[in-house]
Computed example of a mutant assay.
Amino acid sequence: MKLPACAAALPPAVLLAALAGMVATPAAHATAHATALPSANMEAVVKAAQIDPRRPDDTLTPGAKAGVLLVERALRDRRLLDAKWVDGYFGTTTVAAYAKYQKSLGLTGSDANGLPGRTSLTKLGAGRFKVTGVISPGARVSVGAYVVNARTRSMLKEAKRLLGRDFELDQGSYNPGGDPTSAGTHDGGGVVDISVKGMDSATRTAVVRALRLVGFAAWLRSPQQDDWPWHIHAVAISDTDLSSQAQHQIGDYYLGLNGLAGRGPDDGPKVTIRTWEEYQRR
């Protein structure tokens, strides 16, 4: 770097300050590089990964295309996804590719379910994109006799606050090999069954509504629907530990369906669909 001739006449302190402004430090370069990276909004990407595989067409999930494209390009460059599927649509092919990527990291079970989790998405984006709108299920904790994760427990607590009453679980999460009539929905996180013992019809509906308001896809189930006594089945939207079966139920909920194998119309109270994170920001 060549300084102008007049620089020699400057006081040393002034000269050093001038040089500091002219020379970019390595830290400054790193900051500038990080700032230049595009953003993948995890909330939007996870939402698309739940809904898109259940759509009857190739409609894109609103607000998710940019982030999904970043994920799909990274999977393509790892030779896990053919270029023809890099389209902003997080369908079954992209879910399967993402699950392969998760397994390549040594992840198993609900950590390799094809839904982008914080750890896998951050690693996939290293040097390519930064992750915003992070979702974390948190640690596994207990609610009564049942295991759930911290996010689910917080959601249940808020639903109880809205109701002004308590309710009890019949089944928790992370329960592979549990009741076979659950069809694997409780194998991962974010899923609970709630007892309706002692509740009248109006109270049952009020509980379902409160659960939906805080971010669950929730339905009142009868013995005729799933060979289980009357209960409320609740699935935490966008919980990244969801089993594949529970992911399908979330996608169907967004599409106005009841989450059962027959994919009938939603029979629960109508509310604005929000995730737990969206509920907290409202």
Rank of each mutant, 00 (worst) to 15 (best):
L3Y: 02
P4V: 01
P4D: 04
A5L: 12
C6I: 12
C6L: 07
P11A: 03
P11W: 01
L15S: 07
A28F: 04
A30H: 13
A30Q: 15
A32M: 08
H33D: 05
H33M: 12
V45C: 06
K47L: 13
P56N: 10
P56A: 09
D58W: 03
T61D: 11
T61N: 05
G63H: 11
A66S: 15
L69D: 11
L70G: 09
R73C: 02
R73D: 10
R73G: 05
R73A: 05
A74L: 03
R79I: 02
D82R: 08
D82F: 02
A83R: 08
W85N: 13
F90I: 07
G91V: 03
G91Q: 05
V95W: 04
K100H: 07
Y101H: 07
Q102C: 04
S104R: 14
G106E: 02
G109W: 03
D111N: 11
A112W: 09
N113M: 10
L121N: 06
T122F: 00
K123M: 14
A126M: 04
R128G: 04
V134K: 14
V141R: 12
V143Y: 13
Y146W: 15
T152L: 08
M155I: 01
L156D: 08
L156R: 07
K157T: 13
E158N: 05
A159E: 06
D166M: 01
Y174L: 08
G178A: 09
G178E: 13
G189P: 15
G189H: 08
T205A: 14
A206M: 02
V208K: 07
V208P: 04
L213K: 15
V214W: 08
F216M: 10
W219K: 12
R221M: 13
D226F: 12
D226V: 06
D227P: 00
W228E: 15
I232E: 04
H233C: 07
A234D: 09
A234L: 09
A236I: 00
G251Y: 08
D252L: 12
L257D: 02
L257S: 05
N258E: 11
A261G: 06
R263W: 08
G264W: 02
P269G: 03
K270Q: 13
K270W: 00
E278P: 02
Y279P: 06
